[in-house]
C-alpha cells in the first residue's frame, strides 16, 4: 500500500501508527494475492492477519486515549466504528476457518479492508487532527 503525506493528521504518534498499519495491511494483501499453495498460504494469511489485527487494537487504543485526553466530541461515534471494525476482523478469522480457507472469501474481505482503511485514515480520522490542532493552536 502506498502511504501519502496527504493522509497525515498532524499528530505524530497517530501518523506513525497509520503508516505502520498501511504496511501491515499491505503485507496481508500481498499474502492473500500470492500464488502459494493453499496449505502454505492459509498459514501465511492467518499469520499476517494476526500481525495486522494486533496492531489495529494497539492503534485504536492509543487513538481513542488521545481523543479522550482532548475531550474529542466525536469520541462515542468513533469508538463505535473502531469496535465494529475489530469485531469484523474477529468474525472473519472464525468464518475463514469454517469456510475451509476459501480463496474468494479472503479476497473479498481484504479488498473491502483496503478501501475501508484508506477512507478511515484519509477522511474520518482527519477530523480528530483538525480538532486537536485547533485546540493546540488556541493555547
Amino acid at each position: 500500500m502506498i502511504w501519502r503525506d496527504d493522509y497525515k493528521i498532524g499528530v505524530e504518534l497517530v501518523d506513525k501508527q497509520h503508516e505502520e498499519l498501511f504496511k501491515r495491511l499491505g503485507n496481508f494483501i500481498k499474502t492473500v494475492r500470492s500464488d502459494s499453495e493453499k496449505d502454505v498460504k492459509k498459514e501465511e494469511v492467518e499469520k499476517t492477519l494476526d500481525f495486522m489485527g494486533e496492531y489495529v487494537v494497539t492503534h485504536f487504543d492509543s487513538e481513542e486515549a488521545l481523543q479522550k485526553k482532548y475531550n474529542y466530541p466525536g469520541y462515542e461515534e468513533h469508538h463505535e466504528i473502531h469496535e465494529n471494525f475489530k469485531q469484523e476482523v474477529i468474525d472473519f478469522q472464525k468464518e475463514y476457518k469454517n469456510n475451509d480457507y476459501n480463496e474468494d472469501f479472503v479476497m473479498e474481505f481484504s479488498g473491502r479492508l483496503l478501501t475501508w482503511l484508506i477512507n478511515h485514515v484519509a477522511s474520518t480520522d482527519q477530523k480528530i487532527g483538525d480538532y486537536i490542532n485547533s485546540i493546540e493552536e488556541g493555547k
Binding site: M1, I2, G26, I29, K30, V32, R33, D104, M107, E108, F109, S110, G111, R112, L114, T115, I118
Partner: peptide, 16 residues
C-alpha cells in the same frame, strides 16, 4: 489504492 498490479476483475478488485 493498493500500490500493486491488478490484472483481472477478481474478488479483491470488485470488493474494493
Amino acid at each position: 489504492m493498493s500500490g500493486m498490479e491488478m490484472k483481472e476483475l477478481d474478488k479483491f478488485v470488485t470488493s474494493a
